[in-house]
Design a protein around this nucleic acid. Structure first.
Lengths: 225, 225
DNA sequence: CGCGGCTTTGATGTTCATCAAGTAAAGTGG
DNA sequence: CCACTTTACTTGATGAACATCAAAGCCGCG
């Protein structure tokens, strides 16, 4: 069902106001790709050829800093646009993207999007808004995290995944090391603080399995450290 | 000379490809405002009514965190767009902006810009690129700063102002406290490290007056701490 | 002239990174 | 399928980097 965009429930409202002809054109230059957990969708420095839209799954956006370390910029939820950060700026990706879970990604040729921007002004305006929002959100998160102490950061992350999975019980899709890379701390401290929170009966944690036991206190910690 | 935009040497290339009619329309809804050093251009939470462009001077973009502290997000140089971050997203400013030096700002009605985006596709595309670039730059800077130790951050800031003023000798336009707020450290440590750098003969500093004596070593410090 | 904010230096304390070492889990090749 | 290797996870001990506290001089401003 390659051409089922019209009925796609994951479709962004961004494409809602397109006329039939425009929509058809977009659908034509669209592919849907599956990525297995752990596989890489694009690498920093590669040429940007497509406009990416996450239909299902979970991705991480990151940068390599040293040889062995990554800096995770953010986690992408379904219905998010990906790589929107640099799509209209540089011709190469500024960040790498990989799949944290098995994911399904809609791939639209970047030139088709650019043509659409030129032809359809209200589409352009919508896109500007969307882009603005994503950027604000990412920057806001970074600033926020740096104001918190380590306990606060861990609490923040646990609450973030609660939002994503809409549940107090979930399997955390990232390793301890990746948590550290996401919130600028060391793996050892991630583990230490998770253990503390367990001892304090705020969470139950066993391997990847998380349960938030005391949501109120966790929120307090996220807010004030 | 309110209507001298056509000849304005500070004008952004963004407006270069507009046709006469579009340009006239823009010029019509444009004002040029002067801000004295220290005065506030807009406040976090205020309604966005204009699209701002810095003609001359220097501004800081910041957020209030506690009652008494600010988090400086960035410094705006001439020819930069301001508040582009949230202009198309929220209807209220996400950040406050104030003048670090006497500044001259071009103010264009936001609706005029939005109309232009809708009417002129290549203008929209240019704007997307511009916005993308600014956001990438700000995010990149934040990530970068957090990887450095305090010495590295101070070195970075000193080099940043060198870029802005195109000189190894300049008056630093911000207080020690503001430097701290810009690179996420404490005022006392800013002072301490500036003193260290002076003792090491890497800079000369006396009040606001700065001279970079050993550029090479300063660059080394900025890179590796 | 006195008040408040900025600057500076020193002393002290806390937080977090680093180092070390061991267990568990997961991938790899014969 | 099992030995082997590598990667992830965990805990404790140590130290360095940075924040905080305190005190005093300085400057501009009403």
């Amino acid at each position: 069902m390659e051409n089922s965009c019209e009925l796609c429930i994951y479709r962004s409202y961004l494409f809602d106001n397109l006329d039939k002809k425009e929509f058809a054109l977009l659908t034509l230059s669209k592919k849907e790709l599956e990525f297995r957990k752990g596989s890489i969708i694009c690498r920093e420095g590669e040429k940007i050829k497509s406009f990416l839209y996450l239909k299902q799954g979970l991705l991480k956006i990151y940068k390599n800093v040293d040889n062995r370390r990554e800096q995770i910029i953010g986690i992408t939820k379904p219905k998010d646009f990906i790589g929107l950060l640099s799509a209209f700026n540089e011709t190469t990706h500024l960040y790498s993207i990989s799949a944290l879970e098995d994911s399904s990604v809609c791939v639209i040729d970047i030139e088709a999007i650019k043509n659409l921007v030129i032809k359809d002004g209200s589409f352009a305006l919508n896109l500007l808004g969307k882009m603005s929002k994503i950027n604000d959100q990412i920057l806001g998160t970074r600033l926020n995290i740096n104001l918190k102490n380590l306990r606060g950061r861990i609490a923040y992350i646990l609450l973030m995944f609660r939002e994503i999975y809409k549940s107090e019980i979930y399997d955390i899709p990232v390793s301890r090391k990746e948590i550290a890379e996401l919130i600028e701390m060391r793996t050892e401290n991630v583990i230490r603080i998770l253990s503390e929170l367990r001892k304090d009966k705020i969470i139950r944690i066993e391997g990847k399995s998380i349960e938030i036991l005391d949501l109120h206190r966790l929120e307090q910690i996220a807010e004030f450290g």
